Computed example of a mutant assay.
Amino acid sequence: MLYDMVRRTIKKPLHMLGLDLVRRNEENSKPDEIPLLDDPLEALCYEKAGERVAFMCPLENVIDIRGHGYVLGKWHPFVETLREYNAGQSSSYEDSLLKTYYDTHQPKNAADAYPGFDDAPASFRDWPPHRYRLLPWSANTPEDIDERVRYWTHRDNEEHGCSDLAFSSDGNKSHGPVSTRKGQMEFERLTSIFESIKSKGYDTRLGYPHFRILKRRGEYVLNPVRGKHRTAAAAALGFEKIPALYYRPSIVDISMVNHWPQVRRGVWSRRKAKSYFRYLFNFDSLDWARKRNLLTIK
C-alpha cells in the first residue's frame, strides 16, 4: 500500500530531524473519505509523496495573513463576532462586533491593511488596501491580486444571493469600509455556518478548509486559504482541531527568503520579508483589538 511504503521511506529522515510519524486517525477516517492523519507535518509528507490525505488542523496554530489568531488568547473579527452572537450579545449585523470592526478598520492603502505591522514595502502605500495579499512568497503580480480579489468577492456575493453588490462600492470581507448590505451578508454567512456546525457537527462532506504552512526552525503556523468562515465558526464553538487539507503540498520556509518571488522581483526586500514572516508568528492580535475597544466577550 502506498501509505505504508511512503511511511517507511520518510520515517528515518524525519526522525533525524526530530519529527516522528503518528498513526492514521482511524476513528475519524471513514471508508468514503480522504484518509485523515493526526499530524499536519506527517500529512504534508504524504502530500509531497503524491498521496492525498487530510489532517487534524490545530486551531492554536492558525494565523491569517493579517496576523489574526483564532483561539482564546488571540483575536479574529469573525471568531469574536460569533462568540458575541453565541453569548446573546448580538442578533444582527447592526449590533454586531463585525460592524464595529468594519467601521473602525478602514485601511487607506495596502500597507495600512496589516494590523500592527509597520514594515511593509513603500510601494504598498500607493496601492489599494486589498493588494496587501501580495505576500513575499507569492508568485502573482499586483494585477493578478486585483483580478482574484474582485473575482472571488463577486463569487461570494453571487453565492449568497447578493450578486448585485459591487466590489468598488460595497467592499470586501477582509476590512472596511463595506456597505450595510455587504456587512449583513457576511454576518448572515457566518452565523448560518455557525448554527449548522453547532446543530449538525463538522461535516467534511461539505468541504474541507485549505491551509498553507509556514515554518521556521521547529515552529509552524497555518494560513487559511479557503474555508475561513468554517474555521472561524469551529473556533468560536471551542473546537481545538478540525479536519483540513493543504492548499499546496509545500512549506513556506524562512530559510528560502532569498528565493521568494517578490523578494527576487524587488517588491519586498529581504529584510522586510523576514520582518513580515516574524510578524505572523509574534503579533499580539488580542492586544491590538483591546486597544481599539474591539473586545466584547471577556
Rank of each mutant, 00 (worst) to 15 (best):
P224W: 04
W288I: 05
K291W: 00
Y101T: 02
N282T: 15
H154C: 01
I242V: 11
L21H: 05
A49R: 02
S174M: 13
I213T: 06
F194A: 00
R290K: 12
K298Q: 12
P209D: 07
R212T: 14
S255Y: 11
V178R: 03
K241H: 15
F117Y: 14
N109H: 14
N157F: 07
A234Q: 02
S169V: 00
R66C: 09
E159L: 12
A111I: 04
N25T: 13
P249V: 02
A235F: 07
R23E: 15
D32R: 11
T81F: 06
G266D: 08
I10E: 07
R271N: 10
V71W: 09
S91C: 07
M185R: 05
E27G: 04
P224E: 04
P58Y: 05
C57R: 04
K291E: 11
A236L: 00
L294N: 01
Y247I: 01
Y202H: 07
R125Q: 13
D203M: 06
I63W: 02
P261K: 01
M185S: 02
L280N: 03
V263N: 01
D170G: 05
F124C: 01
R181M: 04
H130C: 01
R189F: 09
R23S: 12
L214V: 08
F281H: 02
A139E: 14
K298N: 11
V22S: 14
G183N: 03
A120K: 06
S29A: 12
Y132I: 04
G69I: 03
H15K: 14
D20K: 13
A120W: 06
S255R: 13
S163G: 08
Y46E: 03
K12R: 12
Y70I: 09
S275D: 11
H130T: 06
Y114L: 11
K30I: 07
F277Y: 10
S91H: 15
L206G: 09
S138W: 08
S199G: 00
G238T: 06
L280M: 06
L14N: 06
Y279W: 13
T204Q: 08
H130S: 03
